[in-house]
Design a protein around this nucleic acid. Structure first.
Lengths: 231, 231
DNA sequence: CCCCAATTATGACATTTGTCAGTTTTCCCA
DNA sequence: TGGGAAAACTGACAAATGTCATAATTGGGG
């Protein structure tokens, strides 16, 4: 599919490229449908291009020396990933794996860098994007360093609701993303069992409901309270 | 003092500005000597310029809703701070306070932005800087999320040794920065008492020595082991 | 549609870390 | 240079979280 007709592009970093630039990208990109569990790239390997998510969901994560996984971002349609390694001229510092079937385009490094270097407006957008990313990451650091696991879980559920929420019956909001309890633990930085236990506490408090692995938010106000002040 | 003669500039972001650009900055900047404890800016206020550290040491930190402090960076001569808020066009998302008497220049926002927009090489350096910053922050997030307090303290001591180490007698290396135990705790994300206890354990293991608040590293290899594999 | 492996869930317990209360030490500056 | 406040330190205990073992449930592929 041509980038000009890509739905995700509308509010992506590529939203206001010139037709010529889009044409170049479209010509050189390759698009693949990835299944759940497939990995786009591994930490430590050399980046050769940029991944652009058309549909589906992807997690970006690091593995520590003792084998634990920490999820850094969840990526959704319109986002792209892998630019940090390209810009810093490093090997990938994280891995990326598909968590829900995804259509993803691959844009060769050269094309990305060409646009970056020839389009000042895009360059500026990229600078702002990295600055914003850094701000988000700093806030996450503070949250992980200073809040309890319970607070972090409540905050994470609210964040997921904002990004993946689907309105359901009776004001409940379904968190529509196929995250395992383990993934959730690896976002928060805790053990899987702890997440399971706290989720069932939240269920007992009627803040959420659980059916299988699907989570519905029943009382966002209550979760907010848990996220801010639990003592 | 004129920027052209600033020792810190040699390997700073301003290392290869043109003489004219330096002249502009020099003309418009103001320099002040700050005492320990003075605050450069507060979280939530509007950035009007950029701080450039000539000498001394500064901490950049956030305060959580429940009053806890998390230190995000320690800043040293040659670094500058406050650019993220300028680039993202936000209010400051953190505060900055002097921890050792410091000579600091203030460069008006307009001058910084002018150079940013007129000097592509500087712009590119800034992009890379933010990308590198983000990489560092991601790694810190993983460490805080996945490592024990003991491991984080060992890792932090090694990091401080790299940055502020002064060779002493008998291969010991003094960590030459006036950090209180509380500051150290606020870097690591733990309670002050926990830091004190672990430091005295490290002392008993002869990994470090303590005299007053000064810490000397005796056995970096041993600390490395604590940082990586403590079980 | 059923079975099996993966995931979720629960219990018991160990360990880490935080909290509070109090003592000792340090060092700043009046 | 001595007094006092801040910082460093110690102990006792509580709370949060991790770990391991095991049971229940689920959902995807044959």
């Amino acid at each position: 599919m041509h980038c000009a007709f890509c739905a995700g592009r509308r509010d992506s970093m590529f939203s206001d490229l010139s037709p010529e630039e889009l044409e170049t990208i479209s010509m050189h990109k390759s698009c693949i449908l990835y299944k759940k569990g497939q990995t786009l790239y591994y930490e430590g390997t050399r980046p050769m291009g940029l991944f652009c998510i058309n549909s589906g969901k992807v997690k970006v994560y690091k593995i520590t020396s003792d084998g634990k996984e920490q999820i850094l971002h969840l990526v959704k349609p319109g986002d792209f990933i892998g630019y940090r390694a390209l810009i810093s001229e490093e090997f990938y510092s994280a891995s990326a794996t598909v968590i829900e079937e995804a259509a993803i385009c691959y844009i060769p490094k050269a094309d990305f860098l060409k646009i970056l270097n020839s389009n000042p407006h895009f360059f500026k957008k990229m600078l702002k994007k990295l600055s914003d990313d850094l701000g988000v990451m700093e806030q996450r650091l503070v949250t992980i360093a200073q809040k309890s696991v319970r607070e972090r879980l409540a905050a994470t559920l609210l964040m997921l609701k904002e990004t993946y929420g689907m309105e359901g019956e009776e004001k409940s909001v379904l968190i529509d993303i196929a995250l395992s309890r383990e993934d959730l633990a690896n976002i928060i930085g805790t053990a899987t069992e702890t997440v399971i236990r706290l989720l069932s506490e939240f269920k007992n408090q009627e803040l959420i409901s659980l059916q299988g692995k699907k989570i519905k938010v029943l009382n966002p106000q209550g979760l907010l309270k848990e996220a801010d002040f639990y003592a």
